[in-house]
Simulated scan of single mutants.
Amino acid sequence: MSQPATPPQPDDLHRDLSQPQAPADVAMSPNGEAIVIQAPPPSDARGPGVPARVPHIGHAILFVALTFLLLMIAQVSLLGLAHPVADPHRTGVAAAHPKLLIAAEAVSYVLTLAASWLFFPLLWQRSFSNGIQWNFATARRNAFKLIPIGLLIGFIVQALSSLIPVPKSIPMDDFFRTSSDVWVVAAFGTLLAPMFEEIAFRGFLFPAFAIAYDWLCLPRTPAAHEHWRNTTNLTLASIIFSAILSSIFFALIHGQQLGHTWIAVFVLFCVSLVLTAVRVRTRSVASSALVHASYNLSVFLTMFIATGGFRHLERLAR
Rank of each mutant, 00 (worst) to 15 (best):
D174T: 15
T232I: 14
E226R: 13
P20N: 07
P98M: 10
H225N: 12
A60S: 11
I102Y: 08
Q133K: 15
S108T: 00
T231W: 05
G80Q: 02
F206N: 13
L101A: 09
L81F: 15
P55N: 11
Q21C: 05
A96L: 07
Y213T: 14
F155K: 01
H59A: 15
R141S: 13
L17M: 12
P171N: 08
G309N: 08
A24F: 05
G189V: 08
H89C: 00
L192P: 09
Y213L: 11
A45E: 04
I248P: 02
L316N: 05
P194N: 03
D214K: 07
E197S: 10
M1E: 05
S179T: 14
L205N: 09
I37E: 03
T276K: 03
V110H: 02
Q19D: 09
I240F: 11
Q9W: 10
P48R: 14
N142Q: 13
I199A: 07
A82Q: 06
Q125D: 13
G309C: 08
G308E: 01
A5L: 02
G259V: 04
L113R: 03
R141I: 00
L218C: 07
G92C: 05
P207W: 06
P167L: 10
A86T: 05
Q257P: 01
L69M: 14
I35C: 04
H89T: 14
T282V: 04
R202F: 00
A289T: 01
V85N: 06
T6F: 08
S161G: 08
W117E: 04
H312W: 07
K99T: 14
W183I: 10
A114N: 00
D181Q: 15
V93R: 11
A223H: 06
H312Y: 12
L70I: 05
A187R: 03
L111R: 08
Q19A: 13
P171A: 07
G80L: 02
L113M: 15
I149D: 01
L66N: 06
F155Y: 15
